[in-house]
Amino acid sequence: MDFPVTFHLFGKTVLAHPLFEALGMFIGMRYYFYLKRKSKEKTPFNTSAAVLIGATAGALFGSKLIGNLENPYKFFEHFDLKTVWTNNTIVGGLAFGLIGVELAKKIVGHKASTGDLIVFPLMLAMIIGRIGCFLTGIYEETYGIPTDSIFGMHLGDQYRRHPVALYEIAFLIILWIILNSILRKNKYPSGFVFQVFMLSYFTFRFLLDFIKPRLEIAGNLGTIQIVCICLIIYYIYKIKNTFLFNHL
């Protein structure tokens, strides 16, 4: 396979990454609306619209902010609008999407959890998007460091590298099976599946980034890892409080 993989559409050459990213978002949203129609918990339209807007706005802002702060020296010393717009990370999107949702819920006065329904559509979108990351090889910053392990692959240069996009796809599939099992038991409070997803994903990403090229910001940690630590602490606290509240 030659990297980056491209497709010829309407007379133009299109990289796999943006194509699969857009496809993932489209299919993920369709799956979300499908689950929403089937759900017994009916959320008012105003609340659903506010949450969707909050999540989208927060995710867009956060993905670009954290994506650009992965290399703050380049961001501040060589500011370029095109570079700023193209730098994204799902970690920032998830973190600030959460903030956007919580702000939206406060504005409309909705206190119940709205997260469980979005978990599987979000995971599906991420899996499809990561296929695009893998097919782009080393031409976007979603590849691993060189390795001699049996998992090493040539991704567009002379080195065998960790195919971190494939690792993430495998992790998400396994997590899907686990979370679906939790959901089927139907004995956990609303929002618990979302909390477990977020805690699991941020823990995974914290560890995964040790085998990705990164600029060390604090000790040997990169920006994404620092954000992950903050969210891991937050969700450990949330899950602990969820169980304490439900056992009082």
Rank of each mutant, 00 (worst) to 15 (best):
A50P: 07
V5P: 01
Q158T: 15
T142Q: 01
K74M: 13
V196N: 04
Y34W: 13
I128P: 00
F61G: 08
K185W: 06
L52M: 15
D157A: 04
I118L: 14
I211S: 00
K105N: 12
K12I: 11
G109E: 07
C228K: 08
N68E: 08
I150V: 15
Y34R: 11
L124G: 02
L35F: 05
I226H: 04
L122H: 03
N71V: 12
Y237E: 11
I131V: 14
H247N: 15
Y32D: 01
L15N: 12
I90K: 01
I66Y: 07
I118K: 06
T56A: 13
V91G: 02
N46W: 10
R160D: 14
Y201W: 07
A16F: 04
P44N: 11
I66C: 06
T203V: 12
G115Q: 07
V108S: 06
V108I: 11
F10C: 09
L244T: 14
G156H: 03
P121Y: 09
F202E: 05
K240Y: 10
G54E: 06
T56H: 06
V119W: 02
I99H: 07
K74A: 14
W176R: 02
H110A: 13
L122I: 10
I145E: 02
D116N: 13
N220I: 11
D2E: 12
E168Y: 00
A104E: 07
I150R: 08
